[in-house]
Design a protein around this nucleic acid. Structure first.
Lengths: 115, 115
DNA sequence: TTTCATAGTATCCTATTTGTAACTACTTAC
DNA sequence: GTAAGTAGTTACAAATAGGATACTATGAAA
C-alpha cells in the first residue's frame, strides 16, 4: 500500500474478498451450492443424503442461502409434501468461484497424494 | 449417492470442494493470500496492519498457510530482525479462486447497494 | 537506563459453528 | 392402530474460531 494511487483499490479488493466470504463462509454453503448448480434441483432429504449434512445444519444453511437469494424453495403439492430446492439465477454467478475451487481441490489432492 | 454410475464422479467433485475449503477456510486465509499474491512480499507487521488481523491470529494463520506450502517465511538479517512473508509459486494456483471471489464480491456489493 | 521497534507468544475469554439425538406434524399404506 | 416416509425443529453438548490484552526477547537509539 505504498502506492497512494492504488490505496483505495486495494481496500476495495480486500473488502470484496471479505464480502464474498461473508456470504459463502463456513463448511457447507459452497458445497450445497455446488450440488444445486451442477446437479440441479434436489429435495431436502436428497440434499441431506448427498451432502452428508444433518437436517438441523442443512435447514439453517438453506435459510441463509435463501436470504441471500442464492437458492429457491418450492413446496410441492404431493403426498407427503415434498420441498424442492434449486439454485437461483444469481447463484449462477458463483459458478466461477465454485468451479475454480473444484479444480484447485482436485489438483491439490493429486499433489499431496503424490508426495 | 444411490446412482452407481454417477456416484464416483459426484463424490470426487464434492470432496474436491471440501478439500479446498479445508485448506483455505476461515475468515482470513484467502484475504492473506490475496494480499501476498496481488501486492507481493510483506513483513509481519505490515501484513497485520494491512489486513486488520491481530498478531495472535495472524501468526496462527501464517503457520497453517506455511504448512500447506502456500507462503514462504524468510527471516532477514536486519536490526531489529524482520521477517518477510511471500506467497509461494503454488499459491499462484489459487489465483483463479481468489480473483473469482474478488469479482463476485465487487458485483455482489453493487447488487445489494442498488436494492 | 529507558524507550522504541521488530516479531511474535501466552493467557483468558466469548462467540460462533457444528454435531447428536430425539422429537413434531402430516399423510399414506398396511 | 401402527409403521413408514415426507420436512423439518428442539434441546443440549462439543468443538472450533476469533478477539483483547499483556507479555517475552532482541537490539539500537536517545
Amino acid at each position: 500500500m505504498k502506492n497512494k494511487s492504488s490505496g483505495v483499490a486495494c481496500e476495495n479488493v480486500h473488502s470484496a474478498i471479505q464480502d464474498t466470504l461473508y456470504v459463502v463462509n463456513g463448511k457447507w454453503k459452497l458445497l450445497i451450492l455446488s450440488i444445486l448448480v451442477n446437479e440441479g434441483t434436489k429435495r431436502f432429504g436428497e440434499l441431506s443424503r448427498a451432502s452428508g449434512i444433518s437436517p438441523r445444519i442443512l435447514s439453517k444453511e438453506l435459510h441463509e442461502l435463501e436470504m441471500n437469494q442464492l437458492v429457491n424453495r418450492k413446496v410441492c403439492d404431493t403426498k407427503p409434501v415434498t420441498v424442492e430446492y434449486s439454485s437461483t439465477e444469481y447463484a449462477g454467478t458463483l459458478k466461477e468461484v465454485i468451479d475454480a475451487m473444484i479444480r484447485w481441490g482436485e489438483n491439490h489432492r493429486k499433489k499431496i497424494t503424490a508426495q
